[in-house]
């Protein structure tokens, strides 16, 4: 098993990794059950589904994590809707890290692209890292 990603191991400016997936019927059914009012334009996925896509990539790429990290702030730019069945690749990189009042702030950049490399959404996750 790989070593836990401690704060010291993050290198500002470096890519941590990427994950690709197409949102399947099972995940969509789960979404519709939880948010039945969220009706997208036919042929597209609900806009907000980019949030769990980002989180799934984070869970997969930024791992293994120490327990106790806090997701403090989220910046998110919606660029274009995702088409049904479109494969989405989300790349996560370390933007910066800072020690502030003994707290370990980690800033992760997120960039998701779809078919043909078109940008779908970008974001920044501000984390307070546990160790």
């Amino acid at each position: 098993m790989a070593d836990i990603l401690t704060f010291d191991r993050f290198v500002p400016g470096s890519t941590i990794g990427s994950a690709s997936e197409a949102v399947g019927e099972e995940a969509l059914a789960r979404w519709r059950k939880m948010y039945p009012w969220d009706q997208p334009v036919p042929g597209r996925l609900p806009i907000a589904i980019c949030v769990p896509l980002m989180m799934r990539a984070y869970m997969k790429v930024v791992a293994p994590r120490p327990p106790g990290n806090i997701h403090a702030r989220q910046e998110f730019t919606f660029v274009a809707p995702i088409s049904e069945g479109e494969n989405v690749t989300t790349e996560i990189s370390c933007l910066n890290k800072e020690l502030r009042r003994e707290r370990r702030y980690l800033f992760l950049a997120v960039r998701s692209t779809g078919e043909g490399g078109r940008v779908l959404f970008t974001g920044r996750m501000d984390m307070i890292w546990a160790v």
Binding site: P40, A72, R73, Q74, F76, T77, F78, V79, A80, P81
Partner: peptide
């Protein structure tokens, strides 16, 4: 409407 928000920037704190 989703066609009007391409480029929308959201910044939130939990």
């Amino acid at each position: 409407g989703e066609d009007a928000i391409g480029g929308a920037l959201l910044d939130v704190k939990f």
